[in-house]
C-alpha cells in the first residue's frame, strides 16, 4: 500500500521537475542578446579626439576639468587613456593645481590618475607661498585625496628655491611635501 502511495505521489513531482528543467534549457538556448556585440578587448570601445571634460560640484562650481588631444577606453575596463592630458582640479571654483603629461590614464571610480612622460604638477602661487612646480617622468595623482607621488627622480621648484630627490609624495591640500632618499635643496631668496 505504502509502495503504491509512494509511486503515486512521486511520479507527478518528477514530472514537474523535468518540465522545469526543460523550460530553463529552452530559455537558455533560445536567448539571443541582440545588444552584446563581441568586442575585441585589445581595441578601444570608443575614442574621443580633442576633448574637454568638465565636472561641477553640488553648488555648480568648477570641480575638475580634463583636457586631452585624444581619449580612448577599452571594453569592460575602468581606466580611460589619454594623450597629452591636462587635469585641472578646483576647490570651490578656485584652481588648486593642474597636472600635465604626454600620456596618462584615469580611473573614474577610484578617482586616481597616472601620468607618464614629462609630467608637471603646478600649484599656483597664493597668499602664503610662491608657485610650486613638481617635475618628474611619472606621477600618480589621487584627485579624491589631492595627493600626488612619484618614485622617479624629481625636481621641485618653489619660488627661486629648487629641490632634487629620488621620489616624493605631496599632500597638496596640506602643503606637505616629502622628498625621499638622496635630496638636495637650494634655497634662494
Amino acid at each position: 500500500m505504502i509502495k503504491l502511495l509512494r509511486s503515486h505521489r512521486l511520479f507527478p513531482v518528477l514530472l514537474v521537475g523535468l518540465t522545469a528543467l526543460l523550460t530553463i534549457w529552452l530559455d537558455q538556448i533560445s536567448r539571443w542578446d541582440s545588444h552584446r556585440r563581441e568586442l575585441d578587448p585589445d581595441k578601444p570601445e570608443y575614442v574621443a579626439e580633442n576633448m574637454i571634460a568638465t565636472r561641477y560640484d553640488k553648488q555648480g562650481k568648477l570641480m575638475d576639468r580634463l583636457i586631452a588631444t585624444r581619449m580612448w577606453q577599452y571594453p569592460g575596463k575602468p581606466d580611460a587613456y589619454f594623450e597629452n592630458p591636462d587635469l585641472y582640479q578646483y576647490q570651490q571654483g578656485v584652481l588648486q593645481y593642474h597636472v600635465t603629461g604626454e600620456t596618462g590614464r584615469y580611473n573614474n571610480k577610484s578617482q586616481q590618475a597616472y601620468f607618464d612622460k614629462k609630467v608637471v604638477l603646478i600649484k599656483p602661487a597664493d597668499s602664503k607661498q610662491p608657485e610650486t612646480r613638481l617635475v618628474s617622468s611619472a606621477m600618480f595623482v589621487d584627485t579624491g585625496k589631492r595627493f600626488a607621488s612619484s618614485k622617479a627622480p624629481s625636481v621641485i621648484y618653489q619660488g627661486n628655491s629648487v629641490a632634487n630627490s629620488i621620489g616624493f609624495s605631496y599632500l597638496e591640500s596640506q602643503g606637505l611635501l616629502n622628498l625621499y632618499s638622496k635630496t638636495k635643496i637650494v634655497y634662494a631668496k
Binding site: 607661498q129 629641490a163 611635501l177 632618499s181 638622496k182 635630496t183 637650494v186 634655497y187
Partner: peptide, 15 residues
Amino acid sequence: PIEITSDNGCTMEQT
C-alpha cells in the same frame, strides 16, 4: 643660496 643635501630625504611643510 643655502644648499642642503641629505641622505634620508626631507619633509617640507610649505604653508
